[in-house]
Design a protein around this nucleic acid. Structure first.
Length: 431
RNA sequence: UCCUCAGUAGCUCAAGGGUAGAGCAACCGGCUGUUAACCGGUAGGUUGCAGGUUCAAAUCCUGCCUGGGGAGCCA
């Protein structure tokens, strides 16, 4: 007997198949039982009619507990009452392992309880939909980069010092020395871009900030492309194309998952059908001040400021040319305006905040050296980085895109913690 | 670190000075088309911890602990 996946069940209409999975829920109505089986690729309703199965199978099915692992054999039947379009007329059922007192019920639960049971919470349809979309987002980003001639270059996670020197790092011991968990692979990507042209890294990123909001994780995944011979405008063009490609791919492949998440897909359609809006930092400050925000030129945006700017548009918006003083040391000044840099943040619509931060990098050795001194960074630690400007320096740009923020926005989640399988949050390192 | 809200049955929540309750889950029974099924029954409690006020505290007061939401920081 062939074991098939629920995802492929439509190919077996009228045929007898075997499914291996878990019992998600059971309903009964006297002489008929409905078993909801999940196998990781989908959910299907199995129907048992008492008169059609042996009394042993009938009794066995009646006693199966929630989340017991099962093997079910039956005939696939098209049925308009099924959300999937198909049901399984069950003929034989076996329990692989019986589950006892499964903690997560089908009713609502609180966040604390669910996070404590994240290892089981992942079994629910909603979480499965998010994980499938997350998978597609990663694959689409990588497919797109591959097609554009990018090479994946893995950056180290254990690093000798801060890449940007500002945010708090997780410190660990490295054979008697101190080492830090990476907060960005960017500097390494610059080296790789000058070796391989177009590169990107994708891996976990660690920020020891005591952030406690729906937009922050202690450990999150970031993809960081870096391109030689690409300037600030080329950088933004690449970002826009990639974001549109990913959104389009998810819309193509995950209509059902997005519907299950109750995502308004019209808002995503908007994104792929027109150019992203652009505004400068100067224009943004002007606007915010006219709206009555207490913000001065030179200040960084707060979360409420970002939301107001993002709400000006029904798609993502680039904000560019930030003050040099509030941005990283390696960003290239705007020609003729040294007080601002060739950097842009991409703000997602609907209050999801900054999903991309990117910039053109300084390619001049003397200026970079000056910036390292201004930021009081240890010159010795950046010796290799300075070498990149010493040996065949070229204009180059790159950006970092936060996977969980991207996934949250696409899925319409209210909190980043649902966008990653096992979220690391302040006060939460379990499970 | 700061602001704010909340901790009562396995879960989600009532009871706001006077015997601690419901729905779901569990268990028993009923029902041939259920979609978080439904109906009847059984069992389930040191009301986060410590102290205080009171004849009497889940309820009022103080402190602590834990968690949620937000600020700052940023992807």
């Amino acid at each position: 007997m062939k074991t098939v996946l629920i995802r492929d069940i439509g190919q077996y209409n009228g045929k007898q198949v075997t499914l291996k999975g878990w019992l998600y829920n059971r309903r009964s109505s006297g002489k008929i039982q409905f078993l909801i089986i999940r196998d990781g690729t989908g959910f299907i309703q199995g129907v048992l009619v008492q008169s059609d199965v042996s009394s042993e199978d009938w009794e066995l099915a009646a006693g199966i507990t929630q989340e017991s692992s099962v093997q079910v054999t039956g005939t696939v039947k098209e049925d308009s009452r099924s959300p999937l379009g198909f049901e399984l007329q069950v003929e034989k059922i076996e329990v692989i392992t019986s589950a006892q007192d499964y903690p997560i019920s089908l009713k609502e639960h609180g966040v604390d309880f669910l996070l404590d049971h994240r290892h089981l919470w992942l079994r629910t349809p909603r979480q499965a939909a998010i994980m499938h979309i997350r998978n597609t987002v990663v694959k689409a980003m990588r497919d797109w980069l591959d097609a554009q001639g990018f090479t994946l270059v893995d950056a180290p996670i254990l690093t000798p010092a801060a890449c940007e020197g500002t945010t708090t790092l997780f410190e660990t011991e490295y054979f008697g020395d101190k080492a830090y968990l990476s907060q960005s692979g960017q500097l390494y990507m610059e080296a790789a871009a000058l070796a391989l042209g177009r590169v990107y890294c994708f891996g976990p990123t660690f920020r020891a900030e005591k952030s406690k909001t729906r937009r922050h994780l202690i450990e999150f995944w970031m993809m960081e492309p870096e391109m030689a011979f690409v300037d600030h405008n080329g950088n933004m063009a690449l970002q826009e194309e990639m974001v549109k490609f990913v959104v389009r791919t998810v819309l193509d492949k995950h209509r059902n998952d997005l519907a299950l998440l109750e995502r308004d897909t019209a808002k995503l359609e908007n994104v792929i059908n027109k150019p992203f809006a652009k505004m400068t930092y100067d224009e943004a400050i002007d606007y915010l001040q006219k709206q009555g925000h207490e913000i001065q030129w030179g200040d960084d945006f707060g979360a409420p400021d970002e939301t107001v700017l993002a709400n000006l548009h029904d798609g993502p918006v680039f904000v560019e040319h930030f003050p040099t003083a509030i941005k990283a040391f390696y960003m290239k000044p705007v020609p003729g305006r040294p007080e601002v840099v060739l950097a842009a943040d991409l703000l997602a619509p609907e209050g999801y905040g900054e999903i991309i931060g990117g910039s053109q990098r300084i390619d001049d050795l003397d200026l970079l050296l000056q910036r390292i001194q201004e930021h009081k960074l240890p010159e010795e630690a950046f010796k290799w980085y300075l070498d990149l400007r010493r040996y065949g320096s070229v204009p180059h740009s790159g950006f970092g895109i936060g996977l969980e923020r991207f996934v949250s926005w696409i899925c319409g989640l209210s909190h980043l913690r649902e966008a990653i399988p096992f979220p690391r949050l302040i006060n939460r390192l379990y499970p």
